[in-house]
Simulated scan of single mutants.
Amino acid sequence: MISFNLPDRESLDTFFAKVGVVSIGLTTTWTGEFSLDDGQTWIPVHGTATTTERSKPITVGERKPVLVNPTP
């Protein structure tokens, strides 16, 4: 099973409203379980593992639409 948390809509709007050079980060905490009888019984793996990654910097710009051929 995969589960994840996302920020609320207001946080996303604020994040995507930023202009400039940014990088995106992701931290994942893993848990696991295993089976020795073809999935009849699952045994949890004790503890967790965490991985963290960051993107290379990217430039976020803002563009504004312009109506260039209005219909009379």
Score class of each variant (00 low, 15 high):
Gly47Leu: 05
Thr51Lys: 07
Thr14Cys: 00
Leu6Val: 11
Ile24Lys: 00
Gly25Cys: 05
Thr28Asp: 06
Ser55Ile: 03
Leu12Phe: 15
Trp42Arg: 01
Gly25Thr: 06
Trp30Ala: 08
Lys56Met: 10
Gln40Trp: 02
Leu36Trp: 06
Ile24Met: 10
Gly39Cys: 05
Trp30Phe: 15
Thr41Ser: 11
Ser35Lys: 08
Arg63Met: 15
Arg9His: 08
Val60Ile: 15
Gly32Ser: 08
Thr31Val: 11
Ala49Met: 09
Thr48Ser: 14
Thr50Ala: 06
Pro7Leu: 02
Glu62Ser: 14
Leu67Thr: 06
Ser23Leu: 02
Pro65Ser: 09
Ile24Val: 11
Val68Met: 08
Pro44Val: 01
Glu33Phe: 07
Asp8Lys: 11
Pro7Glu: 04
Phe15Pro: 00
Gly20Cys: 06
Phe16Arg: 00
Thr50Val: 12
Gly32Ile: 05
Thr14Gly: 03
Ile24Tyr: 06
Asp8Ser: 03
Ala17Val: 02
Asp13Cys: 03
Ser35Asn: 07
Pro70His: 04
Trp42Gln: 01
Thr41Arg: 06
Phe15Val: 10
Gly20Ala: 03
Pro57Met: 02
Glu10Lys: 14
Pro44Cys: 04
Ile2Trp: 14
Thr31Leu: 00
Phe4Ala: 15
Thr52Met: 09
Phe16Cys: 00
Gly39Ser: 04
Thr29Gln: 12
